[in-house]
Design a protein around this nucleic acid. Structure first.
Lengths: 216, 216
DNA sequence: GCGGATATTACCAAATATGGTAATTGACAT
DNA sequence: ATGTCAATTACCATATTTGGTAATATCCGC
């Protein structure tokens, strides 16, 4: 890391590009390897500069910053992306996150905070303005894991159910577990009882929906 | 805010409670209103102390910290909760977020960071250790984008498959759609072909996992 | 109008799943 | 030591599903 973290910037605002440029040049921990007013040639730009971190404005003429993020993530999965924006518009925040941005900070942040955000992104963190972080968490809460009920399935029963979800028949399950067909049946009967279902399909549907299993 | 942010702590580790106590007492921006070794009486404790922020250990004897969070969120929706933990175990992080925690930081964080996290939580932010933040974002990404494949199922086939996922048998489906048992079978055969499966369970699992249907 | 996809029905034979009942063994807790 | 629970196996009778093959009717596009 003799030259610090290699950074490139995409932002149509020239004065902001300049101030970031100066900020980075004053600090030996960072190297500015490129600065662009639009993201039409992202792929090319990145291939040439080989940056560690990309700072991307979310609103830009031509290609949208979000699109650019998607492109970068697809072609250069190791490059970390820090979104920079004026607004903390919900839609855009989520779109950026979804596209694969690792951090999301507002343009009115302190210079010091920007520098810290860059190193944080580089080091596997996900810097976010407090308000943005809260929004993400809230969204997270509403979408995420329904608290999975406990059906008190025994270990063995879980094994059997898991195989069933994978599409195996009783006979195949018996073979895989080295037990008798009838034993599998006995387990299935218990499972049906505990899950309040009465057929393989219901059991599978419930198991997947209640996220008792992967979902592959 | 003459007495600063009112904080109470739940943690079974006495020495950690003490160090946080001292930390807060040394700073005029905070007031420690309570300190408890377990969360069995959370509701009562909160009613008495009326805190702004609750610091909650995730692992505690008796009531689980997560459960306590759920309880607090339910009865005191304005109280902000900051989780404190030793491990950044995925399961627990997500469970805590889902339960309604506003922030999640590790116990090995700098004292200064803890103080900042408390004010951040109080001011509507969502402080998270970098690694935790990244995990949340990644989970976020994986949940939103789902490009679902198109298996070219006909309308009728989709209807049949939907009923199958709901747990109906061929006979029941036939009844519901006012068609013959054999017709249902014909559709199923086509569905199996198109989905590349060979049994009800596989079809159901695939249908749900590929999000061809709700998931109840 | 003809080929193609969709929806419908039908029958046979074989494979699987379901419900009920019952018994044995080992582990673990009171 | 007694009882509960998990895991195991067994058998019977039914119900359901699956694979193969085939036929008819309708609608659509070229």
């Amino acid at each position: 890391m003799m030259n610090g973290i290699k950074v490139i910037i995409f932002d149509d605002n020239a004065s902001l590009r300049d101030s970031i440029t100066m900020l980075l040049q004053d600090n030996p921990d960072f190297t500015l390897a490129g600065s662009y007013a639009h993201s039409l040639d992202v792929t090319e730009n990145i291939m040439q500069t080989q940056p560690d971190v990309v700072i991307m404005d979310i609103d830009m003429p031509g290609m949208n910053g979000i699109e650019a993020v998607r492109l970068i993530r697809k072609n250069f999965p190791t490059v970390q992306i820090l979104m920079l924006t004026v607004f903390d518009d919900d839609e855009k925040v989520f779109a950026a996150v979804k596209a694969g941005a690792a951090g999301y900070i507002l343009k009115n942040a302190e210079p010091q905070n920007l520098l810290q955000a860059i190193s944080e992104v580089y080091n596997g963190g996900a810097p976010m303005t407090p308000g943005v972080a809260r929004k993400v968490l809230q969204q997270f809460q509403s979408i995420l894991p329904e608290e999975k009920k406990d059906y008190h399935l025994s270990m063995r029963e879980k094994e059997v159910l898991a195989l069933l979800v994978d599409g195996l028949s009783y006979k195949m399950i018996a073979g895989k577990l080295n037990i008798t067909y009838d034993t599998v049946r006995a387990h299935m009967k218990k499972i049906y009882e505990k899950l309040h279902v009465a057929s393989m399909t219901e059991a599978v549907a419930k198991a997947i929906n209640q996220k008792l299993f992967s979902g592959k």
